[in-house]
Amino acid sequence: MARRENPEINAGSMADIAFLLLIFFLVTTTMNVDSGVSKKLAEKPPVDYVPPKIKMKNIFEISINRNNELFVDGEVMELKDLKEAAVKFVDNGGGIGNPINGEEKGKECDYCGGDKDPESSDHPNKAIISVESDRLTEYGVYVTVQDELLSAFAELRNKLCQKKYNMSFPELEGKFIDSGRKDEALKAKVKFIKQSYPQIITDLDPQN
């Protein structure tokens, strides 16, 4: 009987199979980058801490009740009007601000575009936005409020940045990050913008 020789298995298509698998895994494993509204919590105050006196006109009071209705400085407001109101409040610049950079006296806001209403906030670095929410408020609404406030700040920062450096604030920040966070000139610019409109948003603790 003639010896039958085993025909070699053609391995040529093996690569195709492997490629198919490879592409499948490449496509299906979406690296979902987490993103979110970032918040920095205030440190826990010491027991004997006496909160500083803040003028009422420097506080922008937002409260959300359990029916997800919004009250701003005691008046009902719709969510879509919140950003505008926040911009108006922060950018008012009706008085003298807190001293910055070790200066002795605070200055007037020379970059604000607001109405300079003496009944509204003195200076962006004095303007405090406080958010009070009921325990039963819907989380989605709460996040939306936070987002609107942040976008109000983004708008103000953008406007100032456009005026001073002829580019938008994200652009400036992007350039700074591209320089490996080392470029001192850019760093100073970013810091200046951030300092001009500091995000002072506090969440009120629940009252007992």
Binding site: I64, S133, D134, L136, Y139, G140
Partner: peptide, 11 residues
């Protein structure tokens, strides 16, 4: 958190 959760939990 789910958007239907309550702020109390977050607090």
């Amino acid at each position: 958190a789910d958007k239907q959760s309550n702020v109390g939990t977050l607090t």
